[in-house]
């Protein structure tokens, strides 16, 4: 059975550390004049993007190209997909093209899981609906590790729309695997009712959590939530759950501030915070390429994937 990276839970602790260690080595490539390795020569990676996400697509594209893979970008807009072709038919098309790896971004939770059942190649989830975004969690963990060292026992606070956030889901799972203590902070309307079953704690009070945090990760507030009674107003949200300069001052000296982007400056994060030395937001982008190179290498570089999990159903 082939292996895929669909959920952060697909990675054992050893798998996760292997990805992070590999990413650390591959990060050097970015500093060389020749930013390319021959490893995936002759392999085909399809970027299958059903949602617009230029930054994630470019990151995966750069990662695949630095490993010398042939990259085919297949975006839903203007393709047969926008003309109503089903995911299954798209999958059969990819099969016919002989894709070794498929990177999929989709608005429906579980779409990568479905795809994995229909193609022979390894599937990498680049964000599915409100489910998961495992490579984002890997690049976040990679960024934390570079700034803070081992994540065992580190206190990571994730703030914002946890209910709809694939970034939060994947981070909770991966950080737990790596031994960090995660606290979710959000208005009660924006956490799942079953959050008690997750391996993390939950708080409604950002100010109480900040002084004990090594990492604060701010999640984007989606436009469509703003008028759906999850909170009374953007101003109130920002006042209670936004990270401004005063709140940042409550953090321990070594603590870092993260954001998966794109940011709403002035809503969940103040400009002075986003641009401060604590902010890793620009590093996260660069680290994204290294983390994704590591994932692609470990899934596609050998005779069979070295990480990930099979899809049983």
């Amino acid at each position: 059975m082939n292996r895929h990276l669909i959920s952060a839970a697909d990675l054992s602790r050893d798998d996760a550390l292997l990805v992070l260690d590999t990413a650390e080595e591959l990060a050097q490539i970015a500093d060389r004049s020749i930013k390319k390795l021959p490893t995936l020569r002759g392999r085909t990676v399809v970027n299958l993007f059903f949602e617009d996400s230029t930054r994630t697509r470019i990151s995966f594209e750069a990662a695949a190209k630095r490993l010398s893979a042939d990259v085919i970008n297949f975006s839903a807009k203007g393709s047969s997909v926008s003309k109503g072709e089903s995911l299954k038919d798209t999958a059969l098309t990819l099969e016919a093209m002989g894709a070794d790896g498929v990177v999929i971004r989709h608005g429906a939770s579980g779409a990568p899981h479905r795809l994995a059942g229909w193609v022979r190649g390894s599937v990498v989830n680049a964000g599915d609906g409100t489910h998961e975004h495992p490579t984002q969690a890997l690049l976040d963990a990679f960024t934390m590790r570079r700034r803070l060292g081992d994540l065992e026992g580190r206190k990571v606070t994730i703030v914002g729309d946890v209910l709809h956030s694939r970034v939060a889901r994947s981070n909770v799972l991966l950080l737990h695997t790596l031994g960090a203590d995660v606290t979710l902070v959000a208005p009660p309307t924006l956490v799942p009712v079953a959050v008690g079953t997750w391996p993390c704690s939950v708080s409604y009070d950002l100010d109480a959590v900040l002084p004990k945090s090594d990492v604060v990760m701010m999640l984007r507030v989606q436009q469509e939530r703003m008028n759906a009674a999850y909170f009374p107003s953007v101003r109130e949200y920002s006042r209670r759950y936004g990270l401004d300069g005063d709140r940042m001052a409550q953090l321990p000296e070594h603590a870092i501030v993260m954001h998966p982007g794109p940011m709403n400056r002035g809503v969940e994060i103040a400009a002075e915070v986003a641009d401060s030395v604590r902010s890793t937001i620009v590093e996260q982008v660069a680290n994204g390429v290294s983390a994704r190179m590591a994932v692609l290498y470990l899934l596609l570089g050998g005779s069979e994937p070295a990480i990930g999990k099979g899809v049983s159903e």
């Binding site: 292997l18 260690d21 590999t22 080595e25 591959l26 390795l37 021959p38 490893t39 490993l67 290498y297 470990l298 899934l299 596609l300 570089g301 050998g302 005779s303 069979e304 994937p305 070295a306």
Partner: peptide
Amino acid sequence: MYRDDLRLRPARALG
């Protein structure tokens, strides 16, 4: 990453 036998075994950790 430059080996010619990469695809004969699962991908391995990098030195």
